[in-house]
């Protein structure tokens, strides 16, 4: 029984963890700070963005340059999510460890296959990334590979801590497997639920759950909802199946509230990534929280 062996290793490992030397990490988004912390709890982590911010539009401001100057490794999403600011930061920080192609620059999106890669993109399609949809951080099946790759990278940077990092990695994988089993159970009840979204932030998780994002408030990826597009959405027959309008906490509420006022659909505003609130302060808790909220609305819609 693999599970039992892993569990034993996990429990034994907890007692035997050596002290970690503080490795300095620049995390582009809070989800990667969370994974890094799970592997190296003592890491000195600077998180560049928060759940209240749109990660596509950040400025290469002085405090970020300074944080990147100090860091040993930058852990980012990649797939052009940070194309508007990360290259400027890398160039200005002149940190020779954190450069394209160096081990000090880790891109999560390079560790997994992405949804919807495009052979041809142009900007009339909106802000579409040729590499594919970069919002991978809520995908229960893709995160384990990212954690494994991140553990490899961190262990190579801090060889003295390799033993501890490997133990934490196994612990994380065990916990994740247990969580995933719970989520899969929830998914059976959510399957077929239809929601309206704004951008593809929750796309990977919704797909995994079998929840259909049948309406997008954005006219094109990356463009803010316009009045004309919202009226089109209102007339869309797919709206009849929608039970919930789901937006991320960094997005303006007004378009969602407008659609809600016309349709009496509930609006759910959820953090798009890990926050410092206790109910969503790790990726696992965040995914559980999102699923809870979806289940809540699903039940209400069925019984109401």
């Amino acid at each position: 029984m693999d599970f039992k062996r892993l569990f034993a290793a996990t429990l034994l490992g907890l007692a035997a963890l050596p002290a970690q030397a503080a490795i300095k990490v620049f995390a582009c988004e809070p989800e990667w700070a969370d994974l890094t912390r799970a592997l190296v709890p003592d890491a000195d982590i600077h998180t560049a963005t928060s759940a209240r911010q749109d990660p596509h539009y950040i400025e290469a401001r002085p405090s970020l340059i300074s944080a990147m100057r100090r860091a040993h490794i930058a852990v980012c999403t990649g797939a052009s999510l940070e194309a508007g600011w990360l290259p400027a930061l890398i160039s200005r920080a002149s940190n020779r460890e954190i450069q394209p192609g160096k081990p000090g620059l880790f891109f999560a999106a390079e560790q997994v296959s992405l949804h919807q890669p495009h052979n041809h993109v142009d900007r009339s399609m909106g802000d579409v990334h040729p590499e594919g949809d970069p919002h991978i951080h809520l995908d229960p099946d893709r995160l384990p590979s990212i954690v494994n790759a991140l553990a490899d990278r961190l262990a190579a940077l801090a060889p003295d801590d390799e033993h501890a990092i490997r133990l934490r990695q196994r612990q994380w994988q065990v916990r994740w497997k247990l969580e995933t089993a719970k989520w899969r159970e929830a998914a059976t009840s959510l399957e077929g639920l239809s929601v309206a979204v704004q951008h593809s932030n929750f796309g990977y998780l919704l797909r995994w759950l079998g929840v259909e994002p049948s309406i997008d408030l954005e006219p094109k990826p990356g463009l803010p909802p316009s009045a004309s597009h919202l009226s089109e959405a209102l007339a869309d027959p797919a709206l009849d199946r929608v039970r919930l309008i789901l937006i991320a906490s960094y997005q303006g509420e007004r378009p969602a509230q407008w659609l809600a006022s016309k349709t009496e659909l509930p609006v759910e505003i959820l953090p798009g990534t890990v926050t410092d609130q206790p109910e969503t302060d790790t990726l696992a808790k965040l995914i559980s929280h999102i699923i809870d909220r979806l289940e809540h609305h699903h039940r209400t819609a069925e019984h109401g």
Binding site: S50, Q53, Y57, I58, R61, Y250
Partner: peptide, 11 residues
Amino acid sequence: WKWAPDGNNRS
């Protein structure tokens, strides 16, 4: 000097 609520300069 720049100001953006919550640092979310998109909105």
